[in-house]
Design a protein around this nucleic acid. Structure first.
Lengths: 120, 120
DNA sequence: CCGGATCCTTGTCGATACTG
DNA sequence: CAGTATCGACAAGGATCCGG
């Protein structure tokens, strides 16, 4: 892990500040524990390598963990730890901010997080 | 602007979910109005083209504006609009989250946002 | 099948040089 | 000082492959 500075906000962004990480956290917050392929099916369509990468980063920082640490990977879901769960108010704040402040630029925005799309 | 989905959280991240945009917002929150080169001097060292890019994106979404809209660019600072200022609680939440949940991985993290570094 | 790893292409980032 | 142009490096995205 590479930290750009000692600023807490910057450190948070060093971990979460990319196009996908917070969306994975969002899915785990909204749906609860979720398997690899359920996360893959999330509407925005993350690629398999990116998903695996981010899950392993989040695991290494103790923000996400396996539901059954010692059983085989198959159907073994991921879930948020306490630390990951603590992001809930931040994500909710972001969502509410977007509804108010981006609505003029994005007509179709929904009121709340929604359901998965079909996989190709 | 390209929106990945109708989810508000995802839309917020379509705008803010990269390594730099929220850091620019952070600087404007912490310091108030700030010129291009003051923003450049921010401790993390953003590149000139990225800074210009992000400022123009934030302007187009009405989150940032010029302090003197009609005067020449030189020494004409940027500041947050109401919509940009509304991100303050979100950023504060992120910072507090990082202080609690990343402290084991990043020993040197500070308590609060801090002062600029010297430019190279 | 499911959970990834690998490879390859494409696009974006980021450093620096340069211009008005 | 406030940006733009350029170009190499690197990350994202997509397809496919592979072990259990």
């Amino acid at each position: 892990m590479k930290w750009r500075s000692a600023c807490p906000i910057c450190s948070a962004l060093d971990v979460l500040g990319d196009r996908w990480t917070m969306l994975i956290v969002r899915d785990l917050i909204v749906h609860g524990p979720r398997t690899y392929s359920e996360l893959l099916d999330s509407r925005e369509g993350i690629a398999t390598n990116i998903l695996a990468d981010r899950l392993s980063l989040l695991s290494s920082l103790m923000l996400v963990e396996r539901v059954n640490p010692d059983s085989p990977a198959r159907n073994n879901a991921f879930r948020l730890t306490k630390g990951g769960e603590a992001l809930r108010p931040v994500l909710e704040g972001l969502g509410k901010w977007a509804q108010v402040n981006l609505k003029n630029f994005h007509q179709d925005m929904l009121r709340m997080p929604d359901s998965p799309k079909k996989r190709k």
